[in-house]
Design a protein around this nucleic acid. Structure first.
Lengths: 348, 348
DNA sequence: AATTAGCACTCATATCTATTGATTGCTAAA
DNA sequence: TTTAGCAATCAATAGATATGAGTGCTAATT
């Protein structure tokens, strides 16, 4: 059976209602609040048909209807109303981004914060795959007799959390020269290119083999860990505000998922070139025992350069319309962010 | 009335029992499991007396007794048995520290992780007050035309997350010279000394006033924020495993407290020179609305240098004996950690 | 004087039953 | 095709009753 316009209206009513109340909705309520032109009996007939088709469910015989994941899918793909953010919400968002933010992780952290604050859901942000990042320069700074700090400046941000062990006899000057050499060799290359072993630069290998290998290893580690350490969570406690997690066991399962960041990362990765990604229930390839949930993420860009994904994770019953509006608006805000310098650098 | 030895035994029995079961304990159970030589009637008389004295409570007339915060205080101060960690627990702890850890925050993160894993409680770690940290050297590295990275090497670790804005005309060499100048001026001074304005070094102010001011500001910010960003939480979800947080509302209050890190920091600060700090219930100067909890923290040192506090936060009913043993053992482990280099540096 | 046995009393908790009311599905009329 | 009307279903609620764990007190015992 095809879905008539009336059936769509009814699905929309059920989803809209369920999103705010988290209670099964009855035929009478639908008539009252959404479709007064129909009688409750007619609506009941349609409800029965929609249940047959897999869009609705009844918790028990004499209760109202509840949307299935299928219904949400249809809703977000086709029925969802465009929502306008309130003056106040816009104000909050703008406040978060009104001052200069230069570091990618700072931007992402702020993004996650504001998303969580406005949607009242737990939000997540992941730093992007760095394979495509273009190296600007490499600096190696001697910290003490045993270690030196490696700073990798790329168009996507600065990587500065890695140290290498060194021989204590080497002086500051050595590292200045080494930085220059290695910088020159890496400049303009992407991380991906640098990691391809056959493209190693021979002349550097001779003079600074040790350092060179150490740096390659640092980069490799960083890319392979996929920035697992750099996933940002905001508002974990908000999970507990949702009625579906009133049961402590469910809440715990969800929180444990959030804590296990390496399990979370693959769920947040969205396909290339998709600006908005909505995964509902089974769309998430989660193993058994995983709590049911929905994930909505957006890919964010600042001045055309992707800086990562951010979004929300929460119960399947969430206010998709609001979430989408927020993610969307933030996307627009970021794109005209007052001159973050990552991009500038590339143009030089 | 003074507390007789028998009363102490009874308090110990009540606390021991309540720690594992989280259920009121009856006179009969005490006789059965702890003091078979007494009759339940005698125990009842003692229980009544202890209730009078404020050590015990009854949830309702016909229920068993439950310890008050006072009883826990007495317990940890005087009655608590020394507990030996199991072979397996020792193995877990040692595994966490068997490889070289050079960065303070790495050590603290690992410490928090292992504490949470073994105690099954939420654990926290805070970086120490840096006022007393001795500066080794300062490096300023030009990242691009707009900003430079400031790296402050101290005996307590490396501070490397601050950037300063710069004039684009300045070249790499300028910063090398500047680093040397400023390094020389700061070397051997504590952060506290550097921040005292009357001790500013005049000659530097002339040549590198701009940079100098920026760096002072960075240090000031860092010290004043007290490393708020650097509080480490592990195992937040474990809160929900405790029966006292079976009520979702209580659990949420607790999780929100954990998320509000700046509220958490003062609660974790312990007095100078106290290696182990146990705060139970009202000992925490928490505002109204704060969830009741207990906090046990230890101050950790690596080769004699304090690297910060770590411990657990959880319900007042927690296994203090186990927690104390774990914190204690980790303290010993850290103190003989295979040559972390912070300390080495000072001796040179 | 301290301890204990015995018993009445208290009160949270579990269990059962009856009632209510929201909501549906179905049938028959419009 | 739509709708009114009505019996049927079943979760949720309330009340009534029973259960039993545990105490406090008194009087007997050591």
């Amino acid at each position: 059976m095809a879905i008539s316009g009336r059936k769509e209206k009814i699905i929309q009513a059920v989803v809209d209602s369920y999103i705010v109340s988290c209670e099964p909705i009855s035929s009478a309520e639908i008539k009252e609040n959404y479709l007064p032109e129909l009688s409750s009996a007619t609506i009941r007939n349609e409800l029965a048909a929609l249940e047959e088709m897999g869009y609705l469910e009844q918790p028990h015989t004499s209760s109202g209807r509840v949307p299935t994941a299928e219904a949400y899918r249809l809703y977000v793909d086709k029925l969802m109303p465009k929502r306008k953010l309130s003056k106040n919400e816009l104000k909050v968002i703008n406040k978060y981004f009104d001052h200069k933010l230069t570091e990618i992780d700072e931007i992402l952290k702020n993004t996650a914060k504001v998303i969580s604050e406005i949607t009242n859901l737990t939000s997540v942000a992941v730093i992007p795959n760095l394979t495509g990042a273009v190296v600007e320069s490499v600096k190696i700074v001697k910290l003490n007799d045993k270690s030196a700090l490696v700073i990798l400046v790329t168009n996507l941000g600065v990587l500065k959390d890695a140290t290498v062990e060194i021989a204590s006899s080497l002086g500051d000057e050595y590292f200045v020269t080494a930085s220059n050499f290695i910088s020159a060799a890496f400049h303009g290359k992407t991380i991906g290119e640098i990691l391809e072993p056959d493209k190693l630069i021979e002349e550097i290998k001779k003079d600074y083999e040790q350092l060179f290998k150490a740096i390659i290893k640092i980069i490799k580690d960083y890319v392979e860990n996929g920035g697992v350490g750099d996933i940002v969570l905001e508002g974990s406690a908000k999970i507990l505000g949702q009625p579906e997690y009133a049961n402590v066991e469910k809440a715990r399962a969800m929180l444990e998922l959030l804590e296990a960041k390496d399990q979370l990362v693959p769920m947040l990765k969205s396909p290339e070139n998709v600006s908005l990604n909505i995964k509902i229930g089974k769309d998430n390839e989660m193993g058994k025992g995983m709590p049911e949930c929905a994930i909505v993420t957006a890919n964010y860009q600042v001045n055309g350069v992707s800086i990562g994904n951010a979004g929300v994770i929460g119960p399947i019953r969430m206010d998709y319309s609001k979430v989408v509006s927020v993610l969307d608006y933030i996307g627009k805000t970021l794109n005209v962010l007052p001159e973050a310098d990552h991009d500038e650098k590339r143009k030089q």
